[in-house]
Structures are given as C-alpha cells and as structure tokens.
Amino acid sequence: MNELLRAPANAVSRRAVPYWTVRAALGWLAPLIGCSVWLVFGATREVSAVTLVVIAAVALAHLVVMPRWRYRVHRWETTPEVVYTQSGWFNQERRIAPLSRLQTVDTERGVIERIFGLANLTVTTASARGPVHVHGLDLATAQRLAAELAERTQATAGDAT
C-alpha cells in the first residue's frame, strides 16, 4: 500500500492543456461581454472600464496558469488491484478505488472534447464518496482503459458492495 502514497504514474493527454484553456475561455465570455456592454451603456465609464480591465486580467491569468497547473497535477494509474487517480488544480484530490468495488466503467466525450480527441473515464464504485473520474485522456487510451477495467472487474472476486 505504500506505493499508493506516491502520485499516480500516468499523465493525461497533452491535448488536455488547450482543451482546458478553450473551455475556461468560454466561461470568461459572459463576464467579459457583460462588462463590455456595461462599459458602452453604463453611466460610470471609469468604474466599468476598471472593472473590465480587472476581469480581463484575472481571466488572462486563469487561462495561462490553470491548464498547465492542472496538467501537472492530473494523473492516473491502474494496477491489478486498484484504480488510482489524482486531480484538481487549486483543490487537489487523490482517490484509490479497489477493483473489487467497481460497478461500472464509462467513457464520456463532450463536443469540445471530441474536437481535441479527448475523453473522460468515469469509474463508479460501491462507495458513498461517488465515482472516480479521469479527465483529459486521449480517446484511444480511454477506450482501452475502459475495456481493460471492465474485463478486470469481471475477473475480480467480490460483489462490488
């Protein structure tokens, strides 16, 4: 079990960095557009201009730092006994799910993930803590891993409860 105290061995796909950047940029569009509209139609241009500059600076810092930081943190690994993940960027989490507790293994791809050739893996366990997620895998790795985990789960003794 001491080997599981280390970070998982596998990084997610490098394509996760531009994907996370685009996804975050889309999230910043509404505040930036709203503030721009306020700047054009608002009564106090100085306040709205300063607000727009602050929002733009925070957005830029977020878009530069978050995806790269998240890439350095996000890791995954499987062993014959467990699925081991590490995720987050600001709040970080490590999860270890024994194969004997696995119930389902799913892959998921949103529109933007399909553009970048990425997929997410969700491993549902018999745990109150909820499913284990691996975000930012390349599609081939996610499909291989899902098939491998499903096969191992069937071969593992136990009723996943």
Rank of each mutant, 00 (worst) to 15 (best):
N2M: 09
L5F: 04
A9E: 14
A9S: 14
R15D: 02
Y19A: 00
V22N: 04
A24S: 14
A25I: 04
A25M: 09
A30K: 08
G34Y: 05
C35A: 15
V37R: 05
W38M: 15
F41H: 10
G42Y: 05
A43C: 01
A43W: 05
T44I: 06
R45S: 14
E46D: 13
V47D: 12
L52D: 10
V54G: 04
A56C: 06
L63W: 06
M66S: 13
R70M: 11
R72I: 03
V73G: 01
H74V: 00
V82S: 07
Y84T: 01
T85E: 08
W89I: 02
N91M: 01
Q92Y: 00
R94G: 01
I96P: 03
P98A: 10
T104H: 08
D106L: 01
T107E: 09
R109C: 00
G110C: 03
I112G: 04
I115M: 09
N120Y: 01
L121C: 08
T122H: 10
T124W: 04
A128R: 12
G130I: 03
V132C: 08
V134E: 07
V134P: 03
H135P: 02
L137C: 05
D138V: 02
A142S: 10
A142H: 07
A146D: 05
A147I: 05
R152Q: 15
Q154Y: 11
A157K: 12
D159K: 08
